[in-house]
Write a protein that binds this DNA or RNA. Structure first.
Lengths: 348, 348
DNA sequence: TTGAAAGCGCTAACAA
DNA sequence: TTGTTAGCGCTTTCAA
């Protein structure tokens, strides 16, 4: 149990004062080149690393935190990838706080980050109360990812879910579909006006259906693929089977694809479209049409907003990233007997 | 920017001393029920949360850290799920440090955790030098996940990769396969004697082939599905095409499945077996035979080891978790014209 | 340009 | 059972 070197050890080794060392490691103003060299040499010899806890006591941690609901959802991996990319070379470290599910767990994960006094938080939990976030953002910069509600306290980065949903609906409608079901999460996650991505997708879906004089059909499910699969199995076994399913995200879409297969049907008979364009969607055995909402870009932007807050920005910024529809086999068929319209150009 | 409540505020509010509050929040010995009640009431009123940094200065953080290479690999989600489950209700928080790839990034992520003085670390990086880990474990408890090399400094939790590989080879050989290729990562990750999972799987594969008088065929690739797909495409385009591919993990197996499809072949012609049994492996459109090495269990065990170290254990413990082969369609066919042997019992 | 010293919030040893 | 107090390693103000 060798005691780690402290700033005092370095000062002694270099023959200078503690504050001199502090200035060097913080790149602060007022150190001669010679002193800097001496100090850096001592740091190297002692393999010194400043204690984050001690720095935190004075208000800095050089750490950003990102809170993830459902760490198993590959869309969030994209976000983390983007965040890490934006952070590389800044000397700032990234920690992730995973949540299980629901508002309570999201809160816990956010508290884990807040307790560690990170210099900024990227939050993805759609269920945490805005007032709570507002409060949190009074203590450290916060970027809310995905949710459309705005606040003067924290910044937001969202995909344009209305546009993404429009892309999906235009695509399905232009293929001739009229019985389009929407597979989405529980009421809690889609409460009207809550501003969650799923709430927006649902509302815009319903609007498009209404505008065309079609009957909306909403199927609720939990967040897992298995639950989605069961829900869609029930849907397919019921009356007025849909010809297309628009799933609120790719995890649900994979469940839908599973149920379609289980029912002895194929995507030539029932089109399935997802949302997020996770990696597996492009796998040839899946070939799921999906909306790419640029998760890597979102993660990158979120971190940039955090860094600019740290640099002094005080006005709230709200960014929307444009989604793109990736057409694949799962929705390739035109309804009405005009043959297949498989577009494989984006396959793989 | 409202200042958060401190232990002094709570003491004042409750009309007791600072140390009394400290004892209550630490559940320490020597507080009357009445004092505990008063303090807890004050804590509630002020919404007090102890600063982790200040506690860290005195040696405790009530935080465990888990370092993940490749956060996009769904096997690691299982590990995190298990770790969170083991931690729920303990009052200990979990943070995740994601690494990008390679030894250097793994080191960085481990340093991120060490810098935060977590009370224990679950490390998954297969490439970090044992001496470095040994050193780290002198400062805080470390559990190495997956790697088979042992140390008196840190505990290990591994899958039994020799047994898992045996299950795969027995399965493929019993189906009549003789030209079995092994798809694995770069030499760096499979260095003989390094004790990485991939090194063990490779060595045991080669041994099984040798023992049967068969020629081993090893295909190297990067860690991504796309790279695996390209590598397998080259393999299939070359001479002596294999009849079966044993992939070192499911990500590589998915790439192999993609390449098989691209080549206009099916898994009736080329069997594919993976390792990890990630969730998508059981999807009907994929139906990948794979070795389930119980990632959730591994994560749970790892955290338990950390907690028992914290409770005073000093002797090193090395656990191996038994793997199970999940047979699915991707390897269902018997070679030699005896018809299909599809086992769907574990499908879905 | 350099150094001395106060103090961040907490824990733990000790005194009462 | 309760309270007093020293001190963890760092940053930052201020003086030299």
């Amino acid at each position: 149990m060798n005691r780690a070197a402290t700033i005092n050890d370095v000062a002694r080794e270099a023959g200078v004062s503690r504050s001199a060392v502090s200035k060097v490691i913080r790149d602060a103003y007022g150190v001669s080149d010679e002193m800097r060299a001496r100090v850096n040499a001592a740091i190297g010899r002692l393999d010194y690393r400043p204690r984050v806890a001690a720095r935190a006591m004075r208000g800095v941690t050089d750490t950003l935190g990102i809170e993830l609901p459902d760490i198993g959802n590959p869309f969030f991996d994209k976000v983390v990838t983007g965040a890490m990319a934006a952070l590389s070379g800044t000397g700032c470290q990234l920690i992730v706080a995973p949540a299980s599910a629901g508002a309570e767990e999201g809160l816990q994960a956010l508290r884990t980050l807040a307790d560690r006094e990170v210099d900024g938080i990227v939050a993805i939990s759609p269920l945490v109360a805005p007032t709570w976030l507002e409060d949190l953002s009074g203590r450290m910069p916060v970027v809310m990812l995905g949710r459309h509600d705005r606040s003067i306290g924290y910044d937001t980065v969202t995909g344009d879910d209305a546009e993404g949903t429009r892309l999906v609906m235009d695509h399905l409608l232009s293929l001739g579909h009229e019985r389009i079901a929407h597979l989405t999460r529980s009421e809690e996650v889609t409460a009207p006006g809550s501003g969650t991505p799923h709430a927006v997708r649902l509302a815009v879906y319903e609007e498009h259906m209404r505008r065309r004089g079609l009957t909306a059909s909403v199927v609720r499910t939990g967040r897992s693929e298995a639950e989605a699969r069961e829900a869609v199995a029930r849907l397919l076994g019921g009356p007025r089977r849909p010809t297309a399913i628009f799933a609120g995200n790719d995890t649900l879409a994979l469940g839908a694809l599973g149920a379609v297969g289980d029912a002895g049907l194929s995507t030539r008979e029932i089109s399935v479209v997802g949302y997020d364009d996770v990696e597996i969607a492009s796998h040839p055995a899946i070939s799921l049409t999906s909306v790419d909402q640029a998760g890597v870009e979102m993660g990158r932007r979120a971190v940039e907003l955090l860094l600019s807050r740290r640099a002094g920005r005080t006005d709230a910024v709200h960014l929307a990233v444009m989604p793109v529809l990736r057409r694949r086999r799962s929705s390739g068929r035109r309804i009405g007997g005009h043959g297949e319209l498989v577009d494989r150009s984006t396959d793989g």
